[in-house]
Design a binder for these strands. Structure first.
Length: 223
DNA sequence: AAGACGGGGCA
DNA sequence: TGCCCAGTCTT
């Protein structure tokens, strides 16, 4: 169970500032971060679901060369898509991505919708993916929760429960409260990278963490 | 609310 | 070996 309690504005602000400073230097570079082409971002989001980002990068570039448009993807045989995505595992994603592409061509004139509600109608698109597309492709201020964000919040702010509960309203509400008023897309990326590089699931690098002095997790360890 | 899906990377 | 990864969908 995740218990939400009010967080002081000061602590939130401090958290934001520190993390954004960290992000300026340490944010990772990935091919899907260089574009605002909505289809390219949608494809990336599918591949990234529950999958290590550095593993996705080379395969993603190959994928985008072969299927540069949603129409191209929709027309491709499913088996071919399944094969190219095979090294990523979770193979049902290939089918959902293909189905989504076909639906987008058929019902949306090949345009990727720019609202959470419409995106949620696509197979394989849940709250996280829908909001990520809104943020990364359309510049909307949509905060997201993934395993990294959930873990960081849990440790720093002292929420209970680390697993991603994609339908826990309170955690999503907290994410919106904690996110800065603008550039939330960048903010999301900063949190992912911080979770991947510093606030890792196993053996977090608390010794070189700039959030150390106010982190609930570390205080707990010291006791 | 819990379980299934998954190959690859890393300790 | 065992744990973990930019989640979603089905009981």
């Amino acid at each position: 169970m995740i218990v939400y309690r009010t967080i002081s504005k000061g602590k939130i602000k401090w958290f934001r500032c520190e993390l954004l400073v960290w992000g300026k230097q340490h944010r990772r570079k990935f091919p899907w971060r260089n574009t605002s082409y909505a289809y390219a971002i949608l494809a990336a989001e599918f591949m990234l679901q529950k999958t290590n980002a550095p593993l996705v990068a080379p395969l993603y570039e190959e994928f985008m060369e072969k299927y540069p448009t949603v129409e191209a993807l929709a027309e491709t045989q499913f088996l071919e898509i399944k094969n190219i995505l095979q090294p990523l595992g979770l193979s049902f994603r290939a089918e959902r991505l293909h189905k989504s592409a076909q639906l987008l061509v058929k019902e949306y004139q090949g345009k990727i919708p720019n609202t959470q509600a419409e995106l949620l109608k696509l197979p394989g698109v849940g709250k996280y993916t829908a909001r990520s597309i809104c943020a990364n492709a359309y510049g909307q201020n949509k905060a997201v929760i993934d395993t990294n964000v959930a873990r960081i919040f849990e440790r720093f702010f002292g929420f209970e429960g680390g697993r991603v509960k994609s339908r826990c309203p309170l955690l999503w509400q907290a994410a919106e409260e904690i996110a800065p008023p603008r550039d939330v897309g960048i903010w999301n990326l900063t949190l992912f990278d911080f979770g991947a590089e510093v606030c890792t699931a196993k053996n977090p690098h608390c010794d070189r963490c700039l959030l150390r002095e106010r982190c609930g997790y570390l205080k707990q360890q010291v006791k």
